[in-house]
Amino acid sequence: MGNNLIDTRGLSCPEPVLKTRQAMVDKNNSVIRILVDTEVARDNIRNQAEQENFSFSLEKQGEDYLITLKRRD
């Protein structure tokens, strides 16, 4: 796991998507990885990725989800 992994497990709404958005706004981040533990956070981040023009991929890790976002050019 790289050091640019955002761990949002256990955080209430909207902190997971807020932290993700803060990372999206930073133009230096072309790839963002986020660990979430709820379907709500997963779906919110998916919506946000669509809105901010990032690609979204998902990997289930036990009870959690590892999300990878890639900036589209």
Binding site: P14, V17, D43, Q48, Q51
Partner: peptide, 16 residues
């Protein structure tokens, strides 16, 4: 995930 507070919060915070 309907939420009356989340509705406005997302509008203010993440323009969603």
């Amino acid at each position: 995930r309907l939420c009356t507070a989340g509705a406005l919060r997302d509008l203010f915070l993440i323009k969603n």
